[in-house]
Design a protein around this nucleic acid. Structure first.
Lengths: 225, 225, 225, 225
DNA sequence: CATGAATGAGGGTTCATTCAT
DNA sequence: GATGAATGAACCCTCATTCAT
């Protein structure tokens, strides 16, 4: 996706600038709507959120929302993709997460991944409304599925390095479980009333993930595939 | 009345039998409605489930449903209580779960508790629609809150025995986390496509819970409060 | 209906007594239902009153209510007739209301009629729900129409004596107006918060009716038809 | 709108015109809905009127109605306020109604007030459905209460001039009774089948009100407070 | 593209009425 | 006759979505 601007423009000759401006304005609108959606999803949950509420929060008319998004689920999908992109940016900024090997490294790895992830969740209250639900309505499931898959790919990569030699299926499963653990714990973190309880829950999250993965690593050692 | 059993028992009044039969019918209806609700909740999720859908599935008119339940939330509440009662029965049938001490016992304890719990979830598809959601709409939250509290109490009891000497707050937290771990993992189990994957997920669930709790027990040993 | 039991019974030979007892029981049920209906109509108004509420208040099942009354309107009709009968009894007990002639008599006549009428309304809170409404839903209108007609006949009789020589149409109109005046004023009487205000409103009612009828009598004198 | 009448006014923003036009459309819709409501209220009565019926009569969807009115009661309230405003306009157009003193003036005063009032009722069939009911369901009562109070204030003002020196409480009562007399008589006027009967009823209404108020004025003279 | 009024199917709920027991 | 659970049409209201301006 780098800088390949290639042939994307269907703009007519001579008026590239207005088109771009219009596109830019459209992009701004989209941004505003998604921002509003994140807020309302975070406050009310996905099902209870109405498209009109999103539009109102964005200071935009309902019709405008439907100019950019075909329906409610597409708003969710776009927001999910937005989150995915930011997570990707996050990951990129972290640089190369160390080649995990022993327990010590595991702790660090977990800290490196979970820390920003928790921060991300706290910074983006709408995130968990889309991702942290364990049972999803059909529309939402379809909307976030691709993003889920991308996240799963990333995590599987890390887990694969942690458990070298394990069959892909098992790696995938461990990745799935790891994600689910985080997903399940996040509400306990974001829902904590005071900072002390929140810190404690964050520590529990680390404990859960680390002890699970360490056990997996140990098992890998025990039964040399 | 008296001894007038002569005729077929179409007695007008004074006999408890018709009342009992009618109550029995009402109870049966309630059962049918809750059964249908469990199904539909399980299939569609709580929000997407309509009271008319529940009634239709139960082979009953909407008005009939409202004869027994004041509104949708009350159906959920009643179902939650039903589940709580069955869980309690389950627990009672298990007898006294052993006094946990070392790691070996912990494995057994986990197996004793998680095994039936998983079986219960598989047998009752509606259960997770009420309990496994991490973010709940207000109505549902209120409906299941008492039952959640009861479950938490049970688990805290077990955890307390596992981590003697720990302050109540920490025990409560470990219990909360443990429940949440199960809650988060259950969809992976029930959602598994084939039996092999399901078995694997059940194993992961055990691993997750045991490694977490063992780590907690070790910590308890390390830092003698 | 004195003692004319003549040939009313379709009872089969030999079991007249049970039938009568059953009829008596039915009559008692009817009485209870109408009593309950009067109460609930008085408290909630006609439209807001549900047949189930009436049945419940009567300590009877909805089905039982429909055993005696084909629908809600018929309950109203029966109640209206009951009220009419009691009003008739009232009138009969009053004996012959004096031959009205001059103003003095008019005052007395009004007092004789209005006093018991007000008392009746205060004693029967359901009465005004059926009669004091100035605009009625179709069902209720049909239900009370015959009784209204009967009342109108009685009043027209009195007015006719008060305004001798007036054409029937005018007498009927004065009767209609008189009834409407009472009908309109009754809520002010029954709705009065304290006794003092109520007494004042009763006085106003007298003033209204008397001044209207006296004016009519005067007019009768002025323009000798 | 400034002077920019050039193009057809499809300006994107900054111009008040589209907004105004849209508001005008909204106002028109409100008007249509209230007009329809008045009709249906007039035909069916308040309780029997459904919001869908109002919407249909207005040639509008149910959702549209709820865009302007939060619920059925608010429609009634808005209609009541509309009526109040028109009555006020009516009163203003009448100019200063003469300082009433003797009987002659009273006749004129009554004619000045009652004439337009009757005309208003005949022109607005929904009016009596909201105001002429003597017993109201809770929702309607709340909806029209403020308007009732305003009307009462106006009438009390007139009555106060008619009965100088009377305590406020008595003036208020006479006003209440006067209003109630009109309220009770209006259905006889609007419900009249033919014009002749209607005229006669209007005459009766005058007679009723005038004879009542004259009697009150006489009483005031008799017992000089 | 923006607007926001308009749509209308559908949701939860009520209640007059029926009917199996 | 008595019962009360059962019925289901209809009500009020919501909200995802459309469309004239």
């Amino acid at each position: 996706m780098g800088g390949t601007t290639g042939t994307t423009g269907t703009a007519e000759a001579g008026d590239g600038a207005p088109v771009r401006r219009r596109q830019a304005r459209g992009q701004k609108r989209i941004e505003e709507i998604l921002h509003a959606a994140a807020e309302v999803f975070g406050e009310q949950g996905y099902d209870a959120t109405t498209t009109n509420a999103i539009a109102a929060r964005a200071g935009v008319s309902p019709g405008s929302l439907y100019q950019f998004f075909g329906n409610k689920d597409e708003v969710a999908r776009a927001l999910a993709e937005r989150y995915a992109a930011r997570l990707e940016t996050l990951r990129a900024e972290l640089g190369t997460v160390g080649d995990p090997g022993d327990g010590q490294d595991l702790e660090e790895l977990a800290a490196d991944v979970l820390g920003p992830l928790v921060a991300f969740n706290l910074a983006h209250p709408g995130f968990k409304a889309l991702f942290a639900r364990t049972d999803m309505p059909a529309g939402l499931r379809d909307a976030v599925a691709p993003v889920q898959a991308a996240i799963h790919g990333r995590v599987a990569e890390l887990v694969g390095r942690l458990l070298p030699g394990r069959p892909d299926g098992e790696v995938a499963r461990v990745a799935t479980v790891s994600i689910q653990l985080v997903r399940g714990m996040i509400p306990l973190v974001t829902g904590a009333d005071d900072g002390r309880e929140r810190e404690a829950m964050i520590a529990e999250l680390h404990t859960v993930v680390v002890s699970y993965l360490r056990r997996q690593a140990d098992l890998a050692g025990e039964r040399p595939v």
